[in-house]
């Protein structure tokens, strides 16, 4: 729908019909405290019956509301938010380290690829993630430059993409809203105008449960989820509902979830995944890893065949630790056999 179509609809179609077609519109009226508006009439006539006092408290008259309703429809009903920005790759061009030493590095990462970022605390891992998020253009303290699809971005495109490219996930994140898993997923799906809310919610829920060590239900409240369950739900939610093509993950090692499966899930959803990590399983699970020292990328290492072979051994160790944890949780006694 273009502007003219929207204006024509608002002028001629009864409010109730517009609401039915675009349920998100109900919020527009709720936000202005006129949700009991006469639905059988087009907006302008319907507003004649609304309390002018309420409208004036919002600094609006009938004309202004009509104009704002058009803007609202333009943003929320005119297009589908189901797909995110279309990009295929991201390129990081080195700047300089904390001491001003040059960062001689240029690396391009494609969709579906996973990159790990390793380095001591304070070496600049978070700064790198921040540079990616803001699409640095030699304007951050590192002097790095980020290209999308191997091209320079003009200002307009940069502003359009900033804040839409990146989804983030870190150890510190919590759910603060007190809703059931079901209501929460529905709310998020609703904000995405996903075509099929129930289906998306179901896929998210099943997937989150397969990642979590312990099962939870659709009627479990978010605030009652364990750390691992929360993390699993956040990852599944990001995979199925977030339209951001890039996912930045900051330290999820102790989350009590199937980490490898989680990362593979995100990559399989065609995301570019950056993981800042100390976890050998995650670091070696990526195709490449960036070594950060003193604020700059000092090396880019491609995971070797030998490392990949080590990975399965590390996985066995990890699985054994997981079993021990599980036994402890179940109140069992740990024997030497368990250490194998």
């Amino acid at each position: 729908m273009n502007d003219t179509d929207i204006l024509y609809m608002v002028l001629t179609v009864p409010v109730g019909e517009i609401m039915e077609k675009h349920p998100v519109c109900q919020n527009f009226f709720k936000n202005l405290r006129i949700e009991d508006i006469e639905r059988g009439l087009p907006l302008h006539q319907a507003l004649e019956k609304a309390d002018p006092e309420t409208l004036s408290e919002f600094g609006l008259d009938r004309h202004a509301i009509q104009r704002e309703f058009c803007d609202f429809l333009n943003v929320f009903a005119g297009r589908s938010d189901a797909t995110g920005p279309e990009i295929t790759s991201i390129t990081i061009i080195g700047g300089h380290g904390k001491a001003g030493d040059p960062e001689n590095c240029q690396i391009t990462i494609n969709r579906g690829e996973t990159i790990s970022i390793v380095g001591p605390t304070g070496s600049g891992k978070s700064r790198l993630l921040a540079d990616i998020e803001c699409l640095a253009n030699c304007d951050t303290p590192t002097g790095r430059k980020v290209l999308i699809d191997e091209q320079n971005l003009d200002d307009e495109r940069r502003i359009e993409l900033q804040g839409r490219l990146v989804a983030q996930l870190s150890q510190n994140m919590n759910f603060v809203i007190d809703l059931t898993v079901n209501d929460f997923l529905k709310m998020h799906a609703g904000s995405r105008h996903s075509i099929n809310i129930d289906d998306t919610v179901e896929r998210c829920f099943v997937c989150a449960n397969s990642l979590a060590g312990e099962a939870f239900g659709l009627d479990t409240r978010l605030t009652q989820l364990s750390g691992g369950q929360s993390r699993a739900l956040m990852i599944a939610d990001t995979a199925f509902m977030s339209t951001s093509p890039i996912v930045l993950i900051d330290e999820i090692e102790n989350a009590g979830i199937d980490r490898r499966q989680a990362i593979e899930l995100l990559a399989s959803r065609d995301k570019i995944v950056f993981i800042s990590t100390h976890d050998p399983l995650l670091a070696l699970g990526a195709n490449r890893r960036l070594i950060i020292k003193n604020g700059r990328i000092s090396r880019v290492i491609t995971t070797s065949e030998e490392e990949k072979a080590c990975l399965s051994e590390i996985e066995r160790l990890d699985a054994r630790l997981f079993q021990i944890r599980k036994k402890l949780r179940n109140g069992e006694i740990i024997s030497r056999n368990a250490l194998g």
């Binding site: 983030q168 870190s170 510190n172 759910f175 998020h188 904000s191 995405r192 956040m234 977030s242």
Partner: peptide, 13 residues
């Protein structure tokens, strides 16, 4: 940085 990505997205919405 302390709430979930999903909550950030709904908040922005």
């Amino acid at each position: 940085d302390i709430v979930s990505q999903a909550e950030r997205e709904v908040f922005a919405f």
